[in-house]
Amino acid sequence: MKKFLAIVAAVVLVSCASAAMAAYPEKSLTAICPWGAGGGTDSCLRAFCQALEKQLGQPVVVDNRTGAGGVTGHEAIADADPDGYTFGMVTFEYVTYKAMDVSDYKSYVNYDPICRLNADPAGITVNKAWAEKNGIANLNDFIAYCKANPGKVRMGGSSANSVWHIAGGYFMNVAGVELKMVTYPDGAASAVQAAAQGVDIEGVTVSLAEARSFIESGNLICLGLMAENRINNEIFGSIPTCKEQGVEAFYATWRGLAFPNGVDSAIRTKLADACKAAVNDADFVKYMTNAGLGIAYLDGAEFKAFLEQQEEKDVPAAMKAAGIEI
Protein backbone atom coordinates (compact mmCIF):
# COMPACT_ATOMS: atom_id res chain seq x y z
CA MET A 1 0.00 0.00 0.00
CA LYS A 2 2.78 2.35 0.98
CA LYS A 3 4.57 1.56 -2.22
CA PHE A 4 1.43 2.21 -4.22
CA LEU A 5 0.92 5.55 -2.52
CA ALA A 6 4.51 6.49 -3.18
CA ILE A 7 4.10 5.64 -6.85
CA VAL A 8 0.87 7.63 -7.06
CA ALA A 9 2.53 10.55 -5.35
CA ALA A 10 5.48 10.38 -7.72
CA VAL A 11 3.23 10.21 -10.77
CA VAL A 12 1.19 13.15 -9.55
CA LEU A 13 4.31 15.16 -8.80
CA VAL A 14 5.90 14.42 -12.15
CA SER A 15 2.74 15.22 -14.08
CA CYS A 16 2.31 18.43 -12.12
CA ALA A 17 5.88 19.38 -12.80
CA SER A 18 5.61 18.62 -16.49
CA ALA A 19 2.29 20.44 -16.65
CA ALA A 20 3.96 23.43 -15.03
CA MET A 21 6.80 23.15 -17.51
CA ALA A 22 4.56 22.79 -20.51
CA ALA A 23 2.66 25.86 -19.47
CA TYR A 24 5.73 27.94 -18.59
CA PRO A 25 5.63 30.83 -18.94
CA GLU A 26 1.98 31.40 -18.13
CA LYS A 27 2.36 34.95 -16.81
CA SER A 28 4.64 37.92 -17.26
CA LEU A 29 8.30 37.65 -16.27
CA THR A 30 10.32 40.16 -14.30
CA ALA A 31 13.86 41.09 -15.23
CA ILE A 32 15.74 42.86 -12.46
CA CYS A 33 18.15 45.55 -13.61
CA PRO A 34 20.63 46.64 -10.93
CA TRP A 35 21.33 49.94 -12.71
CA GLY A 36 19.21 52.99 -13.36
CA ALA A 37 16.57 53.36 -16.06
CA GLY A 38 18.02 54.81 -19.24
CA GLY A 39 21.62 53.76 -18.65
CA GLY A 40 23.64 51.48 -20.92
CA THR A 41 22.81 48.30 -19.03
CA ASP A 42 19.14 49.21 -18.77
CA SER A 43 18.82 49.95 -22.49
CA CYS A 44 20.62 46.74 -23.36
CA LEU A 45 18.33 44.73 -21.11
CA ARG A 46 15.20 46.41 -22.45
CA ALA A 47 16.23 45.71 -26.02
CA PHE A 48 16.96 42.11 -25.09
CA CYS A 49 13.63 41.71 -23.26
CA GLN A 50 11.77 42.77 -26.40
CA ALA A 51 13.54 40.01 -28.28
CA LEU A 52 12.83 37.56 -25.47
CA GLU A 53 9.12 38.41 -25.48
CA LYS A 54 8.93 37.23 -29.07
CA GLN A 55 10.39 33.87 -28.01
CA LEU A 56 8.30 33.37 -24.88
CA GLY A 57 5.02 34.94 -25.90
CA GLN A 58 4.75 36.67 -22.53
CA PRO A 59 5.73 40.22 -21.54
CA VAL A 60 9.05 40.65 -19.75
CA VAL A 61 8.94 43.64 -17.38
CA VAL A 62 12.18 45.36 -16.45
CA ASP A 63 12.40 46.21 -12.77
CA ASN A 64 15.18 48.68 -11.94
CA ARG A 65 16.44 48.00 -8.43
CA THR A 66 19.17 50.55 -8.01
CA GLY A 67 21.30 51.65 -5.10
CA ALA A 68 24.58 50.99 -3.32
CA GLY A 69 26.59 50.78 -6.53
CA GLY A 70 24.53 47.93 -7.93
CA VAL A 71 24.70 45.79 -4.79
CA THR A 72 20.99 46.22 -4.05
CA GLY A 73 19.90 44.96 -7.45
CA HIS A 74 22.35 42.09 -7.61
CA GLU A 75 21.32 40.88 -4.17
CA ALA A 76 17.68 41.20 -5.20
CA ILE A 77 18.36 38.75 -8.05
CA ALA A 78 19.93 36.20 -5.68
CA ASP A 79 17.11 36.63 -3.15
CA ALA A 80 14.27 36.48 -5.68
CA ASP A 81 11.63 33.77 -5.57
CA PRO A 82 13.08 30.86 -7.63
CA ASP A 83 9.81 30.18 -9.45
CA GLY A 84 11.41 30.90 -12.80
CA TYR A 85 9.51 34.13 -13.32
CA THR A 86 12.22 36.42 -11.99
CA PHE A 87 15.70 36.71 -13.36
CA GLY A 88 18.10 39.60 -13.67
CA MET A 89 20.91 41.16 -15.59
CA VAL A 90 24.28 40.81 -13.89
CA THR A 91 27.21 43.03 -14.75
CA PHE A 92 30.95 42.98 -14.21
CA GLU A 93 30.78 44.82 -10.90
CA TYR A 94 29.28 41.89 -9.02
CA VAL A 95 32.45 39.82 -9.13
CA THR A 96 34.07 42.55 -7.02
CA TYR A 97 31.44 42.85 -4.28
CA LYS A 98 32.62 39.99 -2.08
CA ALA A 99 36.22 41.16 -2.26
CA MET A 100 35.12 44.72 -1.45
CA ASP A 101 33.07 43.45 1.50
CA VAL A 102 29.90 45.14 0.35
CA SER A 103 27.96 41.93 -0.20
CA ASP A 104 28.12 38.37 1.16
CA TYR A 105 27.21 36.83 -2.18
CA LYS A 106 29.67 35.34 -4.65
CA SER A 107 28.93 35.62 -8.34
CA TYR A 108 29.32 31.94 -9.20
CA VAL A 109 28.01 30.49 -5.91
CA ASN A 110 24.88 32.43 -4.98
CA TYR A 111 23.53 32.85 -8.49
CA ASP A 112 22.53 30.47 -11.26
CA PRO A 113 24.06 32.02 -14.41
CA ILE A 114 21.87 31.64 -17.50
CA CYS A 115 24.13 33.10 -20.16
CA ARG A 116 26.47 35.96 -21.02
CA LEU A 117 25.17 38.36 -23.63
CA ASN A 118 27.77 40.95 -24.32
CA ALA A 119 31.37 41.89 -23.78
CA ASP A 120 33.06 45.18 -24.57
CA PRO A 121 36.83 45.29 -24.51
CA ALA A 122 38.71 48.09 -22.82
CA GLY A 123 41.07 50.17 -24.90
CA ILE A 124 44.15 52.21 -24.10
CA THR A 125 43.00 55.57 -25.41
CA VAL A 126 45.11 58.71 -25.04
CA ASN A 127 44.99 62.38 -25.93
CA LYS A 128 46.22 62.74 -29.51
CA ALA A 129 48.08 66.01 -29.02
CA TRP A 130 49.89 64.62 -25.98
CA ALA A 131 50.81 61.45 -27.85
CA GLU A 132 52.22 63.40 -30.80
CA LYS A 133 54.19 65.69 -28.53
CA ASN A 134 55.86 62.72 -26.86
CA GLY A 135 56.37 60.76 -30.07
CA ILE A 136 53.88 58.04 -29.19
CA ALA A 137 52.41 56.40 -32.27
CA ASN A 138 51.58 52.93 -31.05
CA LEU A 139 51.16 50.83 -27.95
CA ASN A 140 54.83 49.90 -27.64
CA ASP A 141 55.88 53.57 -27.73
CA PHE A 142 53.35 54.18 -24.97
CA ILE A 143 54.69 51.34 -22.83
CA ALA A 144 58.25 52.54 -23.37
CA TYR A 145 57.23 56.07 -22.35
CA CYS A 146 55.48 54.74 -19.23
CA LYS A 147 58.55 52.72 -18.29
CA ALA A 148 60.73 55.81 -18.66
CA ASN A 149 58.32 57.84 -16.52
CA PRO A 150 56.91 55.44 -13.92
CA GLY A 151 53.79 56.71 -12.17
CA LYS A 152 53.77 59.93 -14.23
CA VAL A 153 51.20 59.00 -16.84
CA ARG A 154 47.72 59.64 -15.48
CA MET A 155 44.87 57.53 -16.81
CA GLY A 156 41.19 57.94 -16.02
CA GLY A 157 38.90 55.03 -15.36
CA SER A 158 35.34 55.43 -14.28
CA SER A 159 34.28 55.46 -10.61
CA ALA A 160 36.35 53.83 -7.87
CA ASN A 161 36.72 50.05 -8.24
CA SER A 162 34.62 50.08 -11.37
CA VAL A 163 35.36 47.95 -14.37
CA TRP A 164 37.46 50.59 -16.16
CA HIS A 165 39.41 51.49 -13.05
CA ILE A 166 40.33 47.84 -12.64
CA ALA A 167 41.12 47.66 -16.38
CA GLY A 168 43.96 50.10 -15.73
CA GLY A 169 45.31 47.84 -13.01
CA TYR A 170 45.08 44.84 -15.30
CA PHE A 171 47.04 46.63 -18.00
CA MET A 172 49.72 47.64 -15.52
CA ASN A 173 50.13 43.96 -14.56
CA VAL A 174 50.31 42.70 -18.11
CA ALA A 175 52.55 45.40 -19.55
CA GLY A 176 54.71 45.75 -16.45
CA VAL A 177 54.27 49.53 -16.25
CA GLU A 178 53.19 51.90 -13.52
CA LEU A 179 50.32 54.26 -14.31
CA LYS A 180 48.52 56.68 -12.05
CA MET A 181 44.86 55.70 -12.05
CA VAL A 182 42.47 58.61 -11.46
CA THR A 183 38.86 57.95 -10.51
CA TYR A 184 35.83 59.69 -11.98
CA PRO A 185 32.84 58.95 -9.75
CA ASP A 186 30.47 60.68 -12.21
CA GLY A 187 31.21 57.99 -14.74
CA ALA A 188 33.33 57.40 -17.78
CA ALA A 189 31.91 60.36 -19.73
CA SER A 190 33.64 62.96 -17.56
CA ALA A 191 36.93 61.05 -17.70
CA VAL A 192 36.71 60.98 -21.48
CA GLN A 193 35.97 64.69 -21.53
CA ALA A 194 39.00 65.50 -19.39
CA ALA A 195 41.25 63.28 -21.51
CA ALA A 196 39.97 64.90 -24.70
CA GLN A 197 40.91 68.29 -23.25
CA GLY A 198 44.28 66.94 -22.16
CA VAL A 199 43.68 68.40 -18.70
CA ASP A 200 44.20 66.42 -15.47
CA ILE A 201 44.73 63.11 -17.27
CA GLU A 202 46.53 61.91 -20.38
CA GLY A 203 44.24 59.08 -21.33
CA VAL A 204 41.47 56.69 -20.40
CA THR A 205 41.07 52.95 -20.06
CA VAL A 206 37.41 52.74 -21.06
CA SER A 207 35.54 50.95 -23.83
CA LEU A 208 35.42 52.39 -27.33
CA ALA A 209 31.69 53.06 -27.11
CA GLU A 210 32.34 55.47 -24.22
CA ALA A 211 35.08 57.36 -26.06
CA ARG A 212 33.53 57.15 -29.50
CA SER A 213 32.61 60.77 -30.20
CA PHE A 214 36.07 62.06 -29.28
CA ILE A 215 37.84 59.34 -31.24
CA GLU A 216 35.76 60.37 -34.24
CA SER A 217 36.56 64.03 -33.71
CA GLY A 218 40.26 63.26 -33.51
CA ASN A 219 40.87 64.48 -29.95
CA LEU A 220 41.61 60.99 -28.70
CA ILE A 221 43.47 58.11 -30.27
CA CYS A 222 43.08 54.47 -29.29
CA LEU A 223 46.47 52.73 -29.16
CA GLY A 224 45.34 49.22 -28.41
CA LEU A 225 42.19 47.27 -27.82
CA MET A 226 42.29 44.56 -25.16
CA ALA A 227 40.54 41.95 -27.30
CA GLU A 228 41.37 38.90 -29.38
CA ASN A 229 40.26 40.46 -32.65
CA ARG A 230 39.59 43.86 -34.12
CA ILE A 231 36.02 45.12 -34.01
CA ASN A 232 34.34 44.34 -37.28
CA ASN A 233 32.76 47.65 -38.28
CA GLU A 234 33.75 50.72 -40.23
CA ILE A 235 34.12 53.04 -37.24
CA PHE A 236 36.44 50.97 -35.08
CA GLY A 237 37.85 48.61 -37.71
CA SER A 238 41.10 50.54 -38.01
CA ILE A 239 41.91 50.30 -34.30
CA PRO A 240 44.62 47.73 -33.58
CA THR A 241 44.43 45.21 -30.77
CA CYS A 242 47.07 44.87 -28.06
CA LYS A 243 47.69 41.33 -29.20
CA GLU A 244 48.75 42.46 -32.69
CA GLN A 245 51.38 44.62 -31.04
CA GLY A 246 52.75 41.79 -28.93
CA VAL A 247 50.99 42.59 -25.66
CA GLU A 248 48.77 39.75 -24.50
CA ALA A 249 46.06 41.85 -22.82
CA PHE A 250 42.44 40.76 -22.86
CA TYR A 251 40.03 42.64 -20.68
CA ALA A 252 36.37 43.50 -21.12
CA THR A 253 33.27 44.47 -19.29
CA TRP A 254 30.37 42.14 -19.80
CA ARG A 255 26.69 41.68 -19.12
CA GLY A 256 24.85 38.45 -18.54
CA LEU A 257 21.65 36.98 -17.17
CA ALA A 258 21.22 35.00 -13.97
CA PHE A 259 18.53 33.22 -12.01
CA PRO A 260 18.43 32.89 -8.25
CA ASN A 261 19.55 29.40 -7.14
CA GLY A 262 16.92 26.69 -7.00
CA VAL A 263 14.97 27.20 -10.23
CA ASP A 264 13.41 24.04 -11.63
CA SER A 265 15.81 22.61 -14.21
CA ALA A 266 13.17 22.19 -16.94
CA ILE A 267 12.13 25.82 -16.62
CA ARG A 268 15.74 26.87 -16.55
CA THR A 269 16.46 25.03 -19.78
CA LYS A 270 13.42 26.55 -21.44
CA LEU A 271 14.42 30.10 -20.58
CA ALA A 272 18.07 29.48 -21.48
CA ASP A 273 17.01 28.20 -24.91
CA ALA A 274 14.76 31.20 -25.42
CA CYS A 275 17.66 33.50 -24.49
CA LYS A 276 19.96 31.73 -26.92
CA ALA A 277 17.44 32.31 -29.69
CA ALA A 278 16.78 35.91 -28.64
CA VAL A 279 20.47 36.80 -28.90
CA ASN A 280 20.25 36.25 -32.63
CA ASP A 281 17.05 38.28 -33.02
CA ALA A 282 17.51 40.76 -35.86
CA ASP A 283 16.23 43.80 -33.92
CA PHE A 284 18.46 43.02 -30.94
CA VAL A 285 21.51 42.57 -33.16
CA LYS A 286 20.73 45.88 -34.86
CA TYR A 287 20.38 47.64 -31.50
CA MET A 288 23.69 46.27 -30.25
CA THR A 289 25.47 47.30 -33.44
CA ASN A 290 24.03 50.83 -33.26
CA ALA A 291 24.98 51.17 -29.62
CA GLY A 292 28.52 49.98 -30.35
CA LEU A 293 28.13 46.98 -28.05
CA GLY A 294 29.58 43.60 -28.90
CA ILE A 295 27.53 40.41 -28.61
CA ALA A 296 29.57 37.69 -26.89
CA TYR A 297 27.35 34.77 -26.01
CA LEU A 298 28.41 32.16 -23.46
CA ASP A 299 26.05 29.45 -22.22
CA GLY A 300 25.29 28.88 -18.54
CA ALA A 301 28.12 26.45 -17.77
CA GLU A 302 30.74 28.46 -19.66
CA PHE A 303 29.55 31.65 -18.03
CA LYS A 304 29.78 30.08 -14.59
CA ALA A 305 33.37 28.95 -15.21
CA PHE A 306 34.17 32.41 -16.56
CA LEU A 307 32.75 34.04 -13.43
CA GLU A 308 34.80 31.81 -11.16
CA GLN A 309 37.98 32.60 -13.07
CA GLN A 310 37.21 36.34 -12.86
CA GLU A 311 36.17 36.46 -9.24
CA GLU A 312 38.94 34.25 -7.86
CA LYS A 313 41.94 35.07 -10.06
CA ASP A 314 41.86 37.86 -12.64
CA VAL A 315 40.01 40.60 -10.86
CA PRO A 316 41.76 40.41 -7.44
CA ALA A 317 45.14 40.58 -9.17
CA ALA A 318 44.09 43.57 -11.27
CA MET A 319 42.54 45.32 -8.26
CA LYS A 320 45.79 44.93 -6.38
CA ALA A 321 47.73 46.41 -9.27
CA ALA A 322 45.31 49.34 -9.55
CA GLY A 323 46.12 50.19 -5.94
CA ILE A 324 42.68 49.36 -4.59
CA GLU A 325 42.90 48.62 -0.90
CA ILE A 326 40.33 46.35 0.58
Partner: peptide, 12 residues
Protein backbone atom coordinates in the same frame (compact mmCIF):
# COMPACT_ATOMS: atom_id res chain seq x y z
CA UNK B 1 20.78 56.43 -25.68
CA UNK B 2 17.73 57.24 -27.80
CA UNK B 3 19.87 58.76 -30.56
CA UNK B 4 22.26 55.84 -30.53
CA UNK B 5 19.39 53.40 -30.68
CA UNK B 6 18.34 55.06 -33.92
CA UNK B 7 21.83 54.68 -35.27
CA UNK B 8 22.92 58.31 -34.89
CA UNK B 9 25.97 59.11 -32.78
CA UNK B 10 25.75 62.69 -31.49
CA UNK B 11 29.05 64.53 -31.60
CA UNK B 12 31.11 66.71 -33.91
Amino acid sequence: GAFIMKGIQPGP
